[in-house]
Deep mutational scan, measured.
Amino acid sequence: AEEIWQQSVIGDYLARFKNDRVKALKAMEMTWNNMEKKEKLMWIKKAAED
């Protein structure tokens, strides 16, 4: 689920960090860890469908 979420937001994060992939990935990891369980559930369901 986290991978699907990352694939959907990586472009936004890379743009925000001027294509600094290391910073973008760290920010994504922090965002994922801070997400509410119900927000993650949507992505977990999406992962299950694929």
Rank of each mutant, 00 (worst) to 15 (best):
A1E: 03
A1Y: 04
A1I: 04
A1L: 03
A1D: 03
A1V: 06
E2H: 12
E2G: 04
E2A: 11
E2S: 10
E2F: 15
E2K: 12
E3D: 10
E3L: 14
E3Q: 13
E3W: 14
E3H: 12
E3Y: 14
I4P: 02
I4Y: 15
I4W: 10
I4E: 04
I4C: 12
I4L: 15
I4R: 09
W5E: 01
W5R: 01
W5S: 01
W5T: 00
W5A: 00
W5N: 01
W5Q: 00
W5H: 00
W5Y: 04
W5F: 07
Q6A: 13
Q6V: 09
Q6I: 12
Q6S: 09
Q6R: 13
Q6M: 13
Q7M: 10
Q7N: 10
Q7T: 09
Q7K: 13
Q7A: 15
Q7S: 10
Q7C: 12
Q7V: 07
Q7F: 07
Q7R: 13
Q7P: 01
S8G: 04
S8L: 08
S8R: 04
S8N: 06
V9Q: 04
V9A: 02
V9C: 05
V9S: 03
V9M: 06
V9L: 04
V9D: 00
I10S: 04
I10F: 10
I10K: 04
I10R: 03
I10D: 01
I10N: 02
I10L: 11
I10M: 11
G11R: 12
G11L: 15
G11W: 11
G11I: 13
G11Y: 09
G11M: 12
D12V: 07
D12M: 08
D12G: 08
D12W: 08
Y13D: 00
Y13M: 03
Y13Q: 01
Y13E: 01
L14C: 09
L14R: 01
L14G: 00
A15W: 08
A15I: 13
A15M: 11
A15R: 12
A15C: 10
A15P: 05
R16I: 11
R16E: 11
R16S: 06
R16L: 13
R16G: 04
F17V: 03
F17T: 04
F17R: 01
F17I: 02
F17W: 06
F17Q: 02
F17M: 06
F17C: 06
F17P: 01
K18E: 14
K18W: 09
K18C: 12
K18N: 15
K18Q: 14
K18R: 09
N19P: 06
N19E: 08
D20V: 03
D20W: 02
D20L: 02
D20G: 01
D20Q: 03
R21H: 11
R21Q: 08
R21C: 14
R21P: 08
R21L: 13
R21E: 10
V22S: 12
V22G: 11
V22W: 08
V22D: 13
V22A: 11
V22F: 09
K23A: 15
K23E: 12
K23T: 11
K23R: 13
A24L: 02
A24Q: 01
A24I: 05
A24V: 05
A24N: 00
A24K: 00
L25G: 06
L25K: 08
L25F: 10
L25C: 12
L25V: 09
L25A: 09
K26D: 12
K26L: 12
K26W: 07
K26T: 08
K26S: 09
K26G: 07
K26Y: 08
A27K: 04
A27Q: 06
A27C: 07
A27F: 07
A27M: 08
A27T: 05
A27G: 04
A27I: 05
M28V: 02
M28N: 01
M28P: 00
M28C: 01
M28E: 01
E29M: 07
E29T: 07
E29Q: 12
E29L: 08
E29R: 08
E29V: 07
M30L: 12
M30Q: 14
M30A: 15
M30P: 01
M30H: 14
T31G: 09
T31P: 01
T31L: 06
T31H: 12
W32F: 02
W32S: 00
W32T: 00
N33H: 10
N33P: 02
N33E: 12
N33F: 08
N33K: 11
N33R: 09
N34C: 08
N34I: 05
N34A: 12
N34Q: 08
N34S: 10
N34G: 08
N34V: 05
M35V: 01
M35W: 02
M35G: 01
M35L: 04
M35S: 01
M35N: 01
E36K: 07
E36Q: 09
E36S: 15
E36C: 06
K37M: 15
K37I: 15
K37H: 15
K37L: 15
K37S: 14
K37Y: 15
K38G: 11
K38I: 10
K38L: 11
K38R: 08
K38V: 09
E39T: 04
E39M: 05
E39S: 03
E39P: 01
E39N: 04
E39R: 03
E39A: 04
K40M: 03
K40Q: 05
K40W: 02
K40N: 02
K40H: 03
K40I: 03
K40A: 01
L41H: 06
L41I: 07
L41Q: 08
L41N: 08
L41E: 15
M42F: 15
M42I: 15
M42Y: 15
M42Q: 14
M42N: 12
M42H: 15
M42A: 13
M42P: 08
M42R: 15
W43F: 04
W43T: 02
W43S: 02
W43D: 03
W43E: 03
I44E: 15
I44G: 07
I44H: 11
I44W: 06
I44L: 10
I44S: 06
I44A: 11
I44Q: 13
K45R: 07
K45Y: 06
K45V: 08
K45H: 08
K45L: 11
K45W: 06
K45C: 13
K45P: 05
K46W: 07
K46F: 09
K46Y: 07
A47E: 05
A47F: 11
A47T: 04
A47D: 05
A47W: 14
A47L: 07
A47P: 02
A47G: 04
A47N: 04
A48Q: 13
A48F: 13
A48P: 03
A48I: 13
A48V: 10
A48N: 10
A48M: 14
A48K: 12
A48C: 15
E49W: 07
E49C: 12
E49N: 10
E49V: 09
E49K: 12
E49Y: 09
E49D: 10
E49G: 12
E49S: 08
E49Q: 09
E49R: 11
D50I: 15
D50K: 14
D50C: 14
D50L: 15
D50S: 14
D50G: 13
D50T: 14
D50V: 15
